[in-house]
Simulated scan of single mutants.
Amino acid sequence: MSLITYLTRIHFADRVLEDALPEEIDRLKLDRLLVVHDAEAGAGEALDRVLYVLPPHCEASVVAADTLGSGGSATQDRVDGSGRAGVLGLGGSRALGLARQTAEALGEAVPILAVPTTTACVGIASMTPGSSGAAGTRRTARLPSVVLCDPTLTLHAGPAATAAAGMDALVHCIETYLATAWNPPADGIALEGVRRAAAWLQRAVDDGRDIEARREILAVALNGALAGQKGLGGVHALAHAIEAELAARGDPPGRVPAHGALHAALLPPVLAFNAPAVGDRYQSLAEAMRLPPGTDLGEALARMGARIGLPNRLAALGLDAAIMDRIAGLAAEDVANHTNPRHATTADYRVLLQEAL
């Protein structure tokens, strides 16, 4: 049985794309489908697999996420026509988020289908990136009508991409568990995601064709998304801000770290800062990771990041004082900071950045 219903309909199984996508298109009574994909999904087999399994009555229009304007503008002409239209997001967080925003712009009656191809997200986070990807531009978007989690779609990712995406999924679980909102079911889901990540992330990075490890890390991303209604925290606030500032500085896309790649460097100072406000929750996280008693959680996570090839310091980014000041200000304004367990100001984030260098 592949179907899960929690917040929305979720199919999770190897090659579930071929089994469930035609079924869901028929269930939603779709005659036209706008497929929003990122570069990786378009270049690999994912897009071909989606188009191949569409029912004969469903006409597809394909658009690259990078060509869409803010909120999915300039797409109305792609879905005009007879019958009911839907929007399918295919790829990572940007493509899935823009698909949700595009469907919203087209109207409440337009259903959203999410097909993730990375192990970082599954398209149901309560916060989705704006078209610029800048910190502070996150907003709530309507949930997809259905999500298809197919681990075989993630097999293309190399070690570096797998490490960054997997660490991001893990930190989603950690920060959601620590977030200020009261939601015991979400806490349990988040802790289970932490347990899975600690057991399987190294193996997924070491062998990209290990489908069992890929399946487990995609499950971590699902756990983080399901629990993510609680919000995130300081690591994501800083990561959003750093990525936005590096892009604004003019760093070429290949030089701006993938989202998740900097988390291992940010975790020790952020967790140390939050420690007075979390009670015994670090102990619960350490137990989920099966760490020896007395282990410093932040340092253990930094070492875990180093083992999978992630930097544990930010010095290589070349951040000068002016850039760090701007990053600190963006982090304090980011929506992820609103649910950080301890109130963090611009000055606090400036200190945390310095400690991560």
Score class of each variant (00 low, 15 high):
Leu178Gln: 08
Val122Arg: 01
Arg32Val: 12
Ala99Leu: 08
Val147Glu: 02
Ala302Cys: 12
Val63Leu: 09
Ala109Arg: 09
Gly83Ser: 12
Arg32Glu: 11
Leu226Arg: 13
Arg209Leu: 13
Ala286Lys: 10
Asp348Glu: 09
Asp31Arg: 10
Gly166Ser: 09
Ile25Gly: 04
Ser2Met: 13
Ile308Phe: 03
Ser2Asn: 14
Val171Trp: 02
Gly91Val: 05
Pro292Gly: 07
Ile124Tyr: 01
Pro252Lys: 15
Arg281Gly: 07
Ala109Val: 00
Pro129Asp: 12
Met1Tyr: 11
Ala103Asp: 01
Gln202Asn: 12
Ala181Lys: 06
Leu353Met: 12
Asp38Tyr: 03
Ala275Trp: 01
Leu33Met: 14
Met289Leu: 04
Ala336His: 15
Ala199Cys: 10
Arg84Thr: 12
Leu246Val: 13
Pro22Asp: 13
Pro56Leu: 09
Arg290Asp: 14
Gly254Arg: 11
Asn274Cys: 15
Ala332Pro: 01
Val35Gln: 02
Ser61Phe: 06
Leu266Glu: 08
Met167Tyr: 11
Leu7Gly: 02
Leu226Pro: 00
Tyr6Val: 14
Leu113Phe: 00
Arg49Met: 10
Glu216Pro: 00
Ala336Leu: 03
Thr295Asn: 08
Pro269His: 04
Gly233Ile: 13
Thr75Glu: 10
His259Cys: 11
Asn340Thr: 11
Ile124Gln: 05
Val115His: 02
Gly188Lys: 08
Leu352Val: 06
Ser284Arg: 15
Arg215Tyr: 05
Gly107Gln: 10
Gly228Asp: 11
Arg94Ile: 07
Val36Glu: 08
Val50Thr: 00
Arg142Met: 06
Ala197Asn: 10
His236Trp: 13
Leu297Arg: 03
Ala135Phe: 12
Met289Asn: 01
Met324Gly: 04
Gly107Ala: 04
Ala43Arg: 14
Leu267Tyr: 05
Gly107Cys: 07
Arg249Asp: 14
Val87Ile: 05
Glu299Asn: 01
Val220Gly: 01
Ala258Asn: 07
Glu175Phe: 09
Ala198Tyr: 02
Thr345Leu: 06
Val36Cys: 11
Ala277Ile: 05
Val270Lys: 00
